[in-house]
C-alpha cells in the first residue's frame, strides 16, 4: 500500500476511532515514528493520553495545515485560521497543549504556547491566577521576597523598553 492512500486509525482514550490520512497523521512525530516501526498492515494507533474531543481538534489542526501546505495557502490565511482555531476555553486549550506535547507536534505546541503567552502578557500575578483559576500557594511575604530577588527581570525589561 502506498503512503498516499494509506489511512491511519487513531483511537482516543475513550475508544473513539478517527480515520486520518497518512500524511496528516504523520504530522505528529510520535505517530510518524510508530508507523515507521510497524508493518504496513498496521493501521490502528492507540492514543491513550488524549480524549476524543481533544484528538478531534488536533486532527483538525493537522488536516488544515497539511492541506494548507499542499495548496500553498498564504501566510495571512494560515494565521487567521490559527487565531480562530485557538478561540477555545482554557481547559480545551490546555488539553490541546498537552496533546501536542505528547504527540510531538511542534507547530501546534508552539501555537498553543504563544496563545497562552499572549493571554499572560501585561497581566499581574493576581490576574493570571484568576484567568487560569490557579490557587496561589505563596504567602505575601514569600511573594514579596521573590519579587525582590527576581526584580532584575522587570528592571531589565524597563531598560529594554526605554532603549527601544
Amino acid at each position: 500500500m502506498t503512503e498516499k492512500g494509506r489511512i491511519v486509525k487513531m483511537v482516543s482514550q475513550d475508544q473513539e476511532e478517527f480515520e486520518v490520512e497518512y500524511g496528516v497523521a504523520t504530522m505528529s512525530t510520535l505517530i510518524a515514528n510508530v508507523l515507521q516501526d510497524v508493518s504496513e498492515e498496521t493501521t490502528t494507533v492507540p492514543i491513550p493520553n488524549v480524549n476524543a474531543q481533544v484528538l478531534a481538534k488536533v486532527i483538525e489542526y493537522c488536516r488544515y495545515h497539511y492541506e494548507a501546505k499542499r495548496i500553498d495557502q498564504s501566510e495571512e490565511d494560515i494565521e487567521r485560521w490559527n487565531k480562530d482555531f485557538m478561540k477555545v476555553d482554557n481547559k480545551t486549550l490546555f488539553n490541546i497543549l498537552i496533546a501536542a506535547s505528547f504527540l510531538d507536534i511542534a507547530d501546534l505546541l508552539d501555537l498553543g504556547c504563544k496563545t497562552v503567552a499572549g493571554m499572560i502578557k501585561d497581566k499581574s500575578v493576581e490576574q493570571i491566577r484568576e484567568l487560569f483559576c490557579i490557587e496561589g500557594d505563596f504567602t505575601e511575604e514569600q511573594e514579596a521576597k521573590m519579587r525582590e530577588e527576581n526584580n532584575w527581570g522587570s528592571e531589565m525589561s524597563q531598560e529594554n523598553n526605554a532603549a527601544q
Binding site: I120, V125, I134, G136, R147, N150
Partner: peptide
C-alpha cells in the same frame, strides 16, 4: 516573573 509567581 508574574507568571512564575502564580504558584510554587
Amino acid at each position: 516573573l508574574e507568571f512564575s509567581l502564580c504558584c510554587r
